Amino acid sequence: MTTDVVVLNGGSSSGTTTVARALQGMLDDAWLLLGVDDLVDALPRHGPGAAATITFPPDGSVLVGPVFLRVQEAWLAGIAAIARAGVGVLLDDVLLAGGASQDRLAAALSGLDLLWVGVRCDADVAAAREAGRADRVTGMAVAQAEAVHRGVRYDVEVDTSRASPEDCARVVLAALAA
């Protein structure tokens, strides 16, 4: 069976997007890179609909509201449709609830062949990266560094604090070929 979706899970500033971009450049076919940041960017920023989606308090936590869960469900149905139409998807995600998030994602992508990739990064390295990013709340990287991996089962894991994005992508590519 051919892999339909590669799910890359890692905390904020762990390097999931950079690894996914490197992998995208190594694949023989055109794979779409879709990430949770794309979903968050598409959400309303102001007005009544914004309050119940997702918020980022100054302590680095992430609060997910009921509207976000409904929108995320639709988003994942769209990703599943893309993959079922024969286009590979690199899904760059942050499984905030660890294994419970993985179970919810697996159910949404049921019937598709998934490759689960854990993108790890030492909290201090991720925090240093986060400090250089204007689009992150200080503390997210440290809060998420281990929490997003709790209870998650992976097919392959990489560590961006110890290997380059290209080397990490090659590990994932080898797992795809296996």
Rank of each mutant, 00 (worst) to 15 (best):
V62F: 11
R170L: 12
G78R: 01
L33T: 07
T53S: 12
V142W: 04
I79R: 00
V40L: 08
G98V: 09
T16W: 03
V137H: 03
S61W: 05
W116N: 00
E166Y: 07
C121Q: 02
V125D: 07
G88R: 07
D159S: 12
V64W: 04
G47H: 09
A80E: 04
A127D: 12
D124G: 10
G25N: 12
S101C: 06
V156M: 03
V119E: 03
T160E: 01
G132L: 12
M26S: 12
A85M: 08
S14G: 02
P44S: 06
V89R: 02
Q24E: 15
W75L: 04
R21Y: 03
W116H: 06
H149N: 01
P57R: 14
A74G: 07
A145Y: 00
T160F: 00
L76F: 15
A74Y: 07
L8Y: 00
G11M: 01
V87C: 03
L105E: 01
V40K: 14
D135H: 02
Q144I: 06
V19R: 00
A85W: 06
A126Y: 02
L32N: 14
Q24D: 14
L34W: 05
L33H: 09
G111V: 14
L115W: 06
L176F: 02
A123T: 01
A127K: 05
G15H: 01
S161C: 12
V7C: 11
A30G: 08
R153C: 11
A108H: 15
L39Q: 03
L63K: 11
A50C: 07
A22E: 00
T18G: 14
D92M: 08
L33D: 06
T55K: 12
T138F: 13
L27A: 06
A81G: 13
S12P: 09
I79A: 04
G65P: 09
G65A: 07
A143C: 13
A30N: 12
A85I: 11
A80W: 02
A100F: 09
V125F: 06
G65C: 14
L69M: 15
F56G: 05
V119N: 01
S14D: 03
W31Q: 01
N9S: 08
R153H: 07
D38K: 07
G118A: 05
R21S: 09
G118T: 00
L43M: 15
L32I: 05
L115N: 05
R129T: 05
V64C: 04
A77G: 05
A143H: 12
A85V: 07
A106E: 05
I54L: 15
D93S: 14
Q72D: 10
D59R: 13
D41E: 14
A141H: 03
Q24F: 02
A127N: 13
G98Y: 08
A106F: 09
T18K: 13
P48F: 11
V148E: 01
